[in-house]
Design a protein around this nucleic acid. Structure first.
Length: 938
RNA sequence: GCCCGGGUGGCGGAACGGGUAGACGCGCUGGACUCAAAAUCCAGUUCUGGCAACGGAGUGCGGGUUCGAUUCCCGCCCCGGGUACCA
């Protein structure tokens, strides 16, 4: 008898879909489009895991659903194939990262195919392929060739900036640039040498080089971006990270800070992601205030968000690294300051931020004048003031800031209260609300908000400071000392970067004899023998030929992992275009991603950088929209379920869970596949699992060994990893797709437990049997009755609702209920079962296709119309009943449509019992009127 | 500390504008079919008292609004995530 054979069915239809290009998106530019995007995967050696499976299944269900709804769906996939793991592997084995990457991609592709995803593979991209990264290099060149016009609030070509310099220097110019660019006039500009001009322009370019303190990771031999450092160690590998001064490429993302913040407002993205981005950008409004240092030419600028508290300032604190520290320190404090500074410099960032409890600092011996009162204010340095934050200097206002309060208390500095009727003896009053200013001269009696505005106006009038918006966001370091990344299309002439000619892209990675950083922590590209640019022949030539006239050294660093992923969604719309990054017509048609699904771990990395690139590309007229993803959905994590056995200490005896308390035991992870649905251990399997357990003895309860369980991250060392391949092998892809959805809400993290999979697998078997009698396919052509139609229509309503609202789990339940009910009715009517297959097809496409073909469809059902439901057929789930007391309306109650009359009466009685209106009186009878009115008669 | 998200049976989880709490599935119990097993089907399964009919309690805790609260409001507790001397 031919039962449901998932393996054969799935293999057959996957081959058919692929051969007939069923899922190719049309580029006709006319039909309504829908772009469903997954975050593409880094092809690691471990292969696809359950988290991928969940996210990709969700997007596939949505994509298939939208095809059924008549949309021209773009659902592409590719590989984020540059990156550290391939390179680390190459360093260890000497094998070219391209080789391992290619091997991993083949494996990923096979796994993706086996899951039956409806990707349009004709658009596949790989960030490490030259045909792709030539456009990553091209975008870098555009960034290099652009500056940010603050007045126009957009990026513009660098030529425009040169014209402005020629016409009027930089005095009246509002542009995003490095700190401390000296003012110059048009005449100055004309007098500059070519090298001086280039050096100046570099300070305005959106891709620029600067000597900065970077996160250097000695373990990986490279710098890392802020989001790649977690708690002082590298996100990948967990190596310690230190601060180090290096000349690096940077991208001027800070120019976009405000727009990146504003853009969030209209995005249909999860609030937590938007919150995280907003916090990362960290806009704070406040003021810059100048303090003159007494007996010195130096001035100190502080940034504060509380200018209203200026009269509470009793000291200043500078970051130990602040540049004026040396010159202001008085001789008697010079040594102590020097000791403090060198101690701070040695501390790593996390250590410095760990000293919250005990304030540390050092008096410099210098004093500043309060801008209004001219009072003498001592100047300190302290670790709690960070060098790269705000102005690297704060005004110490103990009454209004808890850190300042703790600092003042510890060093016995004066605390001046500027708030009326607020007790600050136990701590600062950092709340802006509920008080008025006091002891503050012209601010007395104002609210803090009014006072802040007043102070800023006054500072501006006296030219002592100004209102200012500060952002936490910092420019992104864009260099990596790695081999396996995009080479910069840059060579150096007299130490200044020059772009190679656009027509000669891609600049392909050179061959090297080893992939590790050089002994001097240099980039692996320094090992390349031919890595020089011949500007006459426009090609890469041997380093021996460098002459500084026509042949120049090429950039040795490569781009970071996020370069290729910051624009890939645009490439899919026209992935094979060789003349442009993407064609105008294709971009205008597909425009943006309608639904983007991926993990929330990219909140402040990829998802921010890609928005930045998109805005840049939009400014320069290449991209049609400034936000590329309308809706974002984060799938939750899939946790593993670990199993434990209890070994009696110093023995090879294992005691069952509920008896373990009586012994001294050590819990040990045991492979979850050795445990059945009732937590019972397979004793023979356990003995065979590890040689050291071959002679294991067991203390059983009720003849069974019961294991304990725990929900933990999936990990090899916990023996709880479940691979999609194994599940497909055993149950088929359709079952797996249904089950990952059935586990729970898409966005929620949830534990994987293979035990439950039999439920959805049984559902498919049950479904199969509806269409078969004694193993042979056969359906009746009888007309469906109303009961059967209701079952179908209710399912159509619920499945459609579930997909549109991303509650895929309830969609699976709705399908199960329908099949259970149809099975109870022994329904084998084609009129019901044919649409039912299409309802199922987003979730379980293979079995749906198979059943429809058996019913005589000559083409794939991928584009069949999704069954509509007739609302008239669906009895409303509930109905509102006016409750009348002796014919007068008292209140309304809603009951489910099929509530038995007895229950309704009981509910009315219960409501009546506590009612104010007729307390105590017992009703004579309760009448349920056919027109859905309930009358209580007294 | 701050900002999010979440607490519902033995377990994963339902409950679309307040209206039969626990859908669906796992697990468990019993039964049918089998010499037996597998597969399949049927019934039961929140806790608690009771042979039962039928009671009592119940959506983290304490209050409030309401005829009626898992759902709305106030105050807490716990778990998960993010972030941090950000001035």
């Amino acid at each position: 008898m031919a039962g449901y054979d998932a393996g054969a069915i799935e293999e057959k239809w996957q081959a058919y879909w692929s051969e007939n290009k069923i899922f190719s998106a049309k580029d006709d530019g006319k039909s309504p489009k829908f772009y469903v995007l997954d975050m593409f995967a880094y092809p690691s050696g471990a292969g696809l895991h359950m988290g991928h499976t969940l996210g990709y299944a969700a997007s596939d269900i949505y994509a298939r659903y939208m095809r059924h709804r008549g949309y021209n769906v773009l659902h592409p996939m590719g590989y984020d194939s540059f990156g550290l793991p391939a390179e680390q592997y190459a360093i260890q084995t000497g094998q070219h990262p391209a080789v391992t990457t290619d091997r991993n991609i083949k494996r990923y592709r096979a796994q993706l195919d086996r899951l039956g995803f409806s990707f349009d593979w004709s658009r596949e991209i790989r960030t490490s392929s030259p045909s792709y990264y030539r456009w990553t290099q091209w975008i870098f060149m555009q960034l290099f060739n652009s500056w940010y016009n603050v007045a126009a609030d957009r990026a513009e070509p660098i030529e425009g900036l040169i014209q402005r310099f020629e016409a009027g220097g930089n005095r009246a110019l509002k542009a995003a640039c490095d700190e401390g660019v000296p003012p110059f006039s048009a005449l100055d500009w004309q007098a500059f040498s070519e090298a001086e001009k280039q050096a100046l322009l570099l300070k305005y370019r959106l891709a620029y080089r600067v000597q900065t303190e970077v996160n250097w990771c000695p373990g990986l031999g490279t710098v890392l971006a802020h989001d790649e450092v977690v708690n002082g160690v590298s996100a990948r590998g967990g190596f310690p990270v230190i601060r180090k001064e290096m000349m690096q490429w940077n991208l001027r993302i800070t120019a976009y800070a405000q727009r990146l913040l504003d853009g969030l407002e209209n995005l249909d993205w999860p609030e937590p992601i938007k919150d995280m981005q907003a916090h990362w950008i960290g806009r704070s409004e406040g003021a810059r205030i100048r303090f003159d240092v007494l007996d010195s030419q130096d001035v100190i600028e502080v940034f504060t968000t509380r200018p209203d508290t200026i009269f509470g300032t009793t000291f200043l604190v500078l970051a130990p690294e602040h540049e004026v520290v040396v010159s202001i320190t008085s001789p008697e404090y010079a040594e102590a300051v020097q000791v403090y500074r060198s101690r701070s410099a040695q501390r790593r960032v996390p250590d410095r931020t760990a000293v919250v409890k005990t304030p540390s600092g050092q008096f410099t011996g210098a004093y500043a004048a309060h801008p209004f009162t001219r009072a003498r204010i001592p100047i300190w340095i302290g670790d709690y003031v960070l060098a790269n934050c705000g102005a690297a200097a704060v005004m110490g206002v103990p009454c209004g800031d808890q850190r300042d309060w703790a600092f003042a208390a510890h060093f016995e500095l004066p605390i001046k209260n500027v708030f009326a009727a607020v007790d600050i003896s136990k701590g600062a009053h950092s709340d802006r609300e509920g008080t008025r200013m006091a002891n503050s001269e012209f601010l007395n009696g104002l609210t803090p908000g009014e006072a802040a505005r007043r102070v800023v106006a006054e500072l501006k009038r006296l030219q002592l400071g100004s209102g200012r918006v500060n952002f936490r966001l910092r420019d992104a370091v864009f260099s990596r000392q790695r081999y396996w990344g995009e080479p910069f299309p840059v060579y150096y002439k007299g130490g200044l970067p020059q772009l190679i000619d656009e027509a000669h892209l891609p600049l392909a990675l050179p061959e090297v004899d080893a992939y590790a950083p050089t002994e001097t922590d240099g980039s692996p590209l320094e090992r390349a023998e031919a890595w020089a640019w011949d500007t006459q022949r426009n090609k890469v030539v041997s380093n021996d030929l460098i002459d500084g006239k026509t042949v120049f050294p090429l950039e040795r660093d490569t781009m970071p992992g996020w370069a290729g992923s910051s624009w890939y969604f645009n490439r899919y719309v026209d992935a094979r275009n060789e003349g442009e990054w993407a064609g105008r017509a294709a971009l205008n048609y597909w425009r943006d991603v309608d639904l983007y699904i991926g993990g929330r771990e990219h909140a402040t990395g990829h998802l921010l950088y890609s928005r930045f690139w998109q805005k840049f590309l939009f400014d320069r007229g290449w991209a049609p929209v400034s936000e590329y993803a309308k809706k974002l959905v984060n799938q939750g994590m899939v946790w593993g379920t670990s199993a434990f056995v209890f070994r009696v200490v110093d023995s090879c005896t294992f005691v069952s869970k509920n008896l373990a308390d009586a012994y001294e035991t050590t819990p040990l992870h045991v492979d979850v596949s050795l445990v059945n649905a009732s937590q019972e251990l397979d004793l023979e399997g356990f003995r065979k699992w590890r040689p050291e357990y071959a002679d294991a003895e067991f203390i059983l309860e009720n003849g069974k060994y019961i294991t304990a369980r725990a929900v933990e991250k999936m990990s090899k060392s916990k023996y709880n990893v479940v691979s999609p391949d194994d599940i497909i092998e055993r149950y088929g892809a359709d079952t797996l797709r249904l089950y990952v959805m059935f586990l729970g809400p898409l966005t929620q993290s949830k534990p994987w437990d293979t035990k439950g999979i039999t439920g959805v697998h049984n559902f498919l078997k049950k479904l199969w049997r509806l269409y078969h009698h004694g193993g042979a396919f056969g359906l009746s052509t009888e007309v469906a009755d109303e009961v059967e139609l209701k079952i179908l229509h209710r399912a159509a309503q619920k499945v459609g609702y579930a997909i549109e609202h991303f509650t895929f789990n309830t969609g699976v339940s709705a399908l199960m209920i329908a099949v259970n009910e149809l099975q109870a009715l022994r329904c084998d009517k084609r009129e019901i079962l044919e649409p039912l297959s299409i309802l199922l097809s987003p979730y379980a496409p293979h079995i749906a296709e198979e059943l429809c073909r058996k019913m005589g469809h000559s083409e794939s059902i991928a584009h069949a119309e999704f069954p509509r439901f007739d609302p008239a057929l669906l009895v409303p789930d509930s109905h509102e009943y006016p409750i009348l007391f002796n014919g007068k309306l008292r209140f309304k109650m809603t009951f489910a449509a099929d509530t038995p009359q007895r229950d309704m009466e009981a509910a009315v009685l219960r409501a009546e019992k506590t009612s104010r209106y007729l307390a105590g009186k017992a009703p004579k009878k309760i009448i349920v009127v056919p027109e859905k009115i309930i009358n209580v008669v007294y």
